[in-house]
């Protein structure tokens, strides 16, 4: 199994998501699906059977009008930095952490579809191809040639836009240097109209996520279970920061937009 190398020498790609800025428009979800050749949902798909590498959840403070407050939380693969639960469980090494970037990679070509990684993931960031991928006639022309579509029966998830990363790497190599995180941004980052999502290398102190990590308003989801996610959320609102912890009975209902 691959383990991460010492920080400093290699990169740790991460994100910061400003929940206070997110207005729940869902542009990130659309951009993500288009970028990564996620097929339109099958007509039989339910809310829990679709593929959404990034998904915007609506949360509220649990109070009634007029004190009710809502916020939108985009959840994607949290790119766990330590003992990612999905990596060690995969029976055939279809999940690996790239030591160069810290990205938790899913290899659909090697995936058996046992879905053990999905059970292991506390962030529900992994998706199974319940149907054969299919695009309406004509829509296949919109497919991204840099990203391979996945077949039925395998698991997939956010990989910080591997296609973009690869293109950036090639470009950097052509210019005679190694790739850095600032060389590209994932599609969701690019699409966000409020610039709520920012991407960068956590090992570079000047990067947005590294700055965010030091910010007192920052939090990560389920920090208590020790997975060291590389997605930092940020909110000035106290009640929003509560969503980082374990569920409390009666708080919030799951819903999503987009």
């Amino acid at each position: 199994m691959t383990s991460e190398k010492k920080p400093g020498k290699t990169a740790r790609y991460g994100m910061t998501i400003d929940v206070d800025r997110c207005n729940g428009c869902g542009a990130c979800m659309v951009a993500c699906a288009v970028e990564n050749n996620v097929p339109p949902a099958h007509e039989g798909a339910t809310d829990r059977k679709g593929i959404t590498w990034i998904r915007v959840f609506q949360v509220d403070n649990g109070e009634d009008y007029p004190n009710r407050r809502s916020a939108f939380v985009p959840v994607l693969c949290q790119q766990c930095g330590k003992d990612a639960p999905c990596v060690s469980v995969c029976p055939q090494q279809a999940v690996e952490v790239d030591p160069a970037t810290g990205i938790v990679g899913q290899m659909p070509e090697r995936c058996l579809g046992c879905r053990y990684c999905m059970v292991a993931c506390p962030y529900h960031a992994r998706y199974f191809n319940w149907w054969d991928p299919a695009w309406p006639a004509g829509m296949e022309k919109t497919l991204n040639p840099d990203v391979a579509p996945r077949m039925r029966g395998v698991v997939e998830k956010c990989n910080f836009c591997h296609g973009r990363w690869h293109a950036a790497k090639q470009l950097a190599a052509a210019n005679g240097r190694a790739i850095e995180a600032v060389d590209y941004v994932p599609a969701c980052v690019e699409a966000c109209p409020t610039r709520a999502i920012q991407f960068g290398d956590l090992n570079r102190p000047e990067s947005a996520p590294a700055q965010a990590a030091k910010n007192g308003a920052s939090f990560r989801l389920l920090e208590t279970i020790g997975t060291e996610p590389k997605i930092y959320y940020r909110s000035k609102k106290n009640w929003v920061r509560q969503i980082s912890s374990a569920p409390k009975l009666g708080l919030g209902k799951e819903s999503s937009r987009g």
Binding site: S88, V89, P91, G113, V155
Partner: peptide, 25 residues
Amino acid sequence: DVGQPLRAWFTFWYPNVHSMLTEVT
């Protein structure tokens, strides 16, 4: 139950010896 039954041999060929599921298989 698995999505790609024809790939069952992958577990034997590329076993992740740290996974409980490998041990089970």
